[in-house]
Structures are given as C-alpha cells and as structure tokens.
Design a binder for these strands. Structure first.
Length: 515
RNA sequence: GGCCCGUUCGUCUAGGGGUCUAGGACGCGUCCCUUUCACGGAUGAAACACGAGUUCGAAUCUCGUACGGGCUACCA
C-alpha cells in the first residue's frame, strides 16, 4: 500500500528547524515509497494564532525543497480543505458521535473551577486529574440527569466534550522507532476533545483528520509520545482501529550546550539561527534570523537536518535530496535526542559551496559586488570572465557566498592601507628601486598571464640579488593591503597589468612618504 | 511529584554476543603540500553512565541505580 503521511504544524509562529526536520522525514518517507505527503494546518487554537505564520511555513518548505503534493499552499487535493479552522463543522459531529456511543461526555465545569481543584490538590501534595476517579464528583453528563444536560445545552451554557477513558486497561502503542510502548489507562485523564469555543482540541482534530485523509503513518516529534495512547483510545472508540495509522515518534532536537529542547533563545545566545528563514514578529517587530538569510544553502541545511536523528549504516555524510529519498528509512532513526551542532552546519555549507562551479559563484559574486561596491554593469570587473576568475581564486577560502566580497574585496577595490606588521618586518627603503624595476618590467610585458607575471617578477628579483621570498609578501601587501590572501600571481594576472602597476606605484608612494 | 522515553569520543553517529586494542564525520592538535592564508593529504588526542545478572564470552541481552529529556492545559 502506498503510504500517506502528513506534516501538521500549528501556525503559532515561525517554523522551528525541528519542525522542518519532522516535515523532511515525512517527505523522505513518502517519496521513498512513492506515497503522498500532505501539509495540513492545525489552527484550532484561536488564541495562539499568529498572522503570517502559515505563509512562513509554506515558504520555508519551498526553500528546503520539501514539496507536499496535497495541502495548504501546494494545491488542494481530494480531502480539502486542509486547514482545520475550515473543517470546524466536521469535528463537532464526530465528538457528538462519541458521546452517543458512550465513549465521551459533556462536561460543564468551568476552567476556573477546575483550576481551583488543581491548586487545592497541589497544595495537598498530589495532582488533580479529571479521570475515572474524579469524574463522578464533577459537573458532567455522567452525573447530571438527561433532562438537566439537555436543558444546559439548550440554554447555551458553555461545555466541553471529554473522552471517557476506561478505568484500568493497558493501552499499547506500537511505535516504529520505539517498539511497544504501553501505559495503564488510569494514568490518562479524560482529555477535552471539543472545546467550549466550538473548536476541537489537537487530539480530536488530529485523529479525525488522519482518519478522513487516510493517513497511514503518523511521523511526529517525541513530545507527542505521551498522548499517543490517548490517540489509540480515540481510534478504538471510533471503531477505526483497523485503519489506525502506524506511529513513529522522532527524537527531539536539543540545545548545543547544556540540556533541554532547542529553542529560539539558544540561537540568540550562541549566534546561530533556529529558523529556516528570517521571521519578523508581527507584534514586537523583532527579527529572528534564518538560515537562508545567513547565507546557507538549502542543500546544506537539509543535509544537516537529515543527519540529526537518522543515519545510514555506511559512512556517507553528504546526501542530495534525491539520495536521501532513496536511503531514508524510519527503522534507522535513532531513539535519543540529538544536540544540534552549529559548526557542522557551516562545514556542510562550505562543502556545498566548493561544489558550485566558478560560473555559479561568479554569478553570485556579481550581485554581491554590485551591492557592496556599486560597480556599474559596464565595469570591466563586472564581466563574467573577471567575476568567474575571482570566484575561482576565492572559492577555497570561504564558507558562505557573502564572504566572497569580504575576503575578496581587494580584487575589486584598491587598498588604501597596508598591513602594518608586514610593512614593519619587510619594508626597507632600498627595496623601492626593486619594485620600480618590477613596474618597468611589467610595463614592457606583452603578456600578463599568471606564469608570465611570476616569471617577470622573479627575473627582476634575481637581477637585484633579492630572494623572491623576501619580496613576495611585501608585494602581496602592496597589491592587496593584506599579508595573506588568494594566490598571489593569480590575483596579479586577474587584476591586469595596468591595475597592478597603478597599485604598486601608489603603494610605493605611501611607503616612501611614511618613512 | 506522577507517567513515558532515552544514555557509545566535546558534538552527530557506526555498532544488533566473539571480526571492538570500538569505525566515520564535525571540531581540536601535529606534520606534509603551499616562499601567504586557505584548500587538500597524513596523523594524533578523544567514548561504550554506573552496578549486578545471563553467557565460555557483552558496547551489544535482562534487571536495578544514576543522569538527561518529554508530557502532565478547554496549547499544539
């Protein structure tokens, strides 16, 4: 049977990278088995709804190359709508059905009165639970007369519908990742299925929709494991046990240091993004940075995420989305939480950057250069020949594309400062005439290839009884301003005869003036 | 507190009773390459939480302890 899986986020804010990983695993699982992957928006909490969050989720998935074939933002399918707020009427009907069959009941206790009970119990050193032990002392259709209940409902009194959890049964959840997980039903409470605001809770909506949308596998975060038995109970109560999906609860993403779930705060504190894309809080205006805007490639981001909790049996670390689709399996997902390591993400980005061609990086460099230095389109430095060559020179020393202009600024802009330490160590006034000779020799050169430029330089050095080693770093500083950088004669050749001569003359003037 | 889940180098992990003097990757150290810095190559330090048990033999199985995490809302 072709699997059908879903990613069902709540639009309560930007999608966290843990959420992206859940989406990714669902997607990979579906693709591997030629199944369907659905995006369903679980917006049943009216209080926590955040405008823009849904659009963010869709854009984030797009950026990562995770494409649902059904669902909000990706073209509806046969089970539309895929937004739970638009399916509101469905849930009431199913909740009522459970009441009719005796698996659920109406409860009229106010949130405040329950809170009071909870506090009282807590003060007494135990915990309050709305369950088989307490339900008969509370205000619900189990204790109220039928007439009373009808009267309350008709008068519009606020009510919720709660699941009547059986008293002493062992509930088993077969989890693909964790095996048999079981709990005694007395530990569960009579969870609210239908809220007084007319919306279902996650538990009801999730189970009903998974059933209606013919979901075969529920792949979600470990935070849902404790409520999985409740969901099993729901399937049973509905009589849907034979089509109940299989469960797979994914290990959590943990903070890089210390303990606990990875949170936005950790990113701020340690300086790495926890979101795929930038997010601007609609209320505070606060911006949280995203991987995309920080210059990460989606391939790198996805690759890292894939390996956080999953690993094939061999030593492969670099995977394209295609390879992930072929190799992924839930059986190889680990059980324990994974601490996120921002460093490794950088390494992956570096790796993917190295795989780009000079042309691709040259193209990236074009807009970077235009923005940073304001070069005109007809500037000789904006030709693809120049940009591609510059990219080739810089490629092995950056992790991100945006570093190309930072580390390669001197390829575009002549330096106006010369690294002090090198000057202090290497510069001697009598060297001026050597560099004058270099200028003259370059002036006379008819070819200015990398090899030619190097050959000429070394000939001049030899003619002045200088070891090239004594001159090279100085030469580099005069050309670029820095004592370290891209391949020297590659840079010289790229800049071209006139520019190099100009820079040398200027450097000589500055150096001689400063002595 | 209760319930559930977990525990191999700093981190991600391989490992499914003997092939483990525990492998790979990131990070870190050293060396080589390079008359720069990187890249690349080589190499090193670095882990089976602890205690019992099962077994001829345990990182691998069982139990306990410790530690960590999750859940415990009319949030998802």
């Amino acid at each position: 049977m072709r699997p059908r899986v879903r990613f069902a986020p709540s639009p309560t804010g930007p999608l966290h990278m843990g959420g992206v990983r859940t989406a990714l695993y669902n997607y990979l699982f579906a693709k591997k088995l030629q199944g369907d992957f659905i995006l369903r928006i679980e917006d049943t909490d009216q209080q926590r709804f955040v405008p823009g969050a849904e659009e963010y989720i869709i854009e984030a998935l797009r950026w990562c190359g995770i494409a649902p074939n059904e669902g909000v933002g990706f073209g509806d399918g046969p089970h539309a709508p895929y937004r739970q707020s638009e399916r509101k009427d469905i849930y009431r009907q199913y909740a009522e059905q459970l009441v009719q069959s005796g698996h659920a009941y109406y409860a009229f206790d106010s949130a405040e009165s329950l809170e009071l009970q909870r506090k009282a119990q807590e003060a007494a050193g135990s915990a309050f639970s709305y369950n088989s032990a307490t339900r008969l002392q509370l205000t619900n259709s189990l204790v109220l007369s039928e007439a009373d209940v009808r009267q309350r409902l008709q008068s519009g009194e606020a009510f919720v519908i709660r699941l009547k959890v059986p008293e002493n049964e062992t509930i088993h959840v077969q989890d693909i990742i964790r095996g048999d997980v079981h709990v005694v039903s007395s530990q569960l409470d009579d969870k609210v299925l239908f809220k007084s605001d007319g919306m279902p809770t996650y538990h009801l909506a999730n189970v009903v929709d998974d059933y209606l949308m013919k979901i075969t596998h529920v792949i979600r975060g470990e935070e849902w494991l404790p409520s999985a038995p409740l969901h099993v109970l729901l399937y049973r109560s509905f009589g849907w046990e034979s089509v109940m999906p299989q469960f797979a609860h994914l290990p959590l993403l943990l903070k890089p240091d210390g303990n606990g779930k990875l949170s936005k705060r950790d990113g701020d504190r340690l300086g790495f993004p926890v979101f795929p894309l930038n997010w601007t809080d609609p209320v505070t205006g606060e911006v949280s940075s995203g991987y995309r805007e920080r210059g990460y490639y989606p391939e790198a981001f996805v690759n890292v995420l894939a390996l956080l909790g999953w690993h094939p049996s061999d030593d492969q670390e670099v995977f394209s989305m295609q390879e992930l689709m072929e190799k992924f399996s839930l059986e190889r997902v680990s059980k324990s939480g994974a601490k996120f390591d921002p460093e490794k993400t950088k390494w992956f980005n570096e790796h993917y950057l190295r795989q780009r061609t000079d042309e691709q990086l040259g193209l990236a460099l074009r807009s970077l250069v235009k923005n940073s230095f304001g070069l005109e389109e007809d500037d000789p430095r904006m030709t693809s020949a120049f940009l591609n060559a510059a990219a080739r020179l810089l490629k092995d020393r950056v992790q991100f594309e945006h570093e190309l202009v930072v580390k390669g600024e001197y390829l575009f802009i002549a330096p106006d400062q010369y690294e002090e330490a090198v000057i202090a160590k290497r510069w001697k006034p009598e060297l001026a005439e050597v560099f004058e000779a270099v200028i003259n020799a370059y002036q006379a050169a008819d070819s200015f290839t990398e090899e030619q430029a190097e050959l000429i330089f070394k000939e001049v050095a030899a003619a002045h009884q200088c070891k090239p080693g004594d001159l090279l770093q100085l030469f580099r500083v005069m050309i670029s301003g820095h004592g370290a950088g891209v391949h020297l004669f590659g840079m010289v050749s790229l800049l071209g005869k006139q520019e190099v001569i100009k820079r040398l003359q200027r450097a000589l003037a500055v150096l001689q003036a400063s002595v």
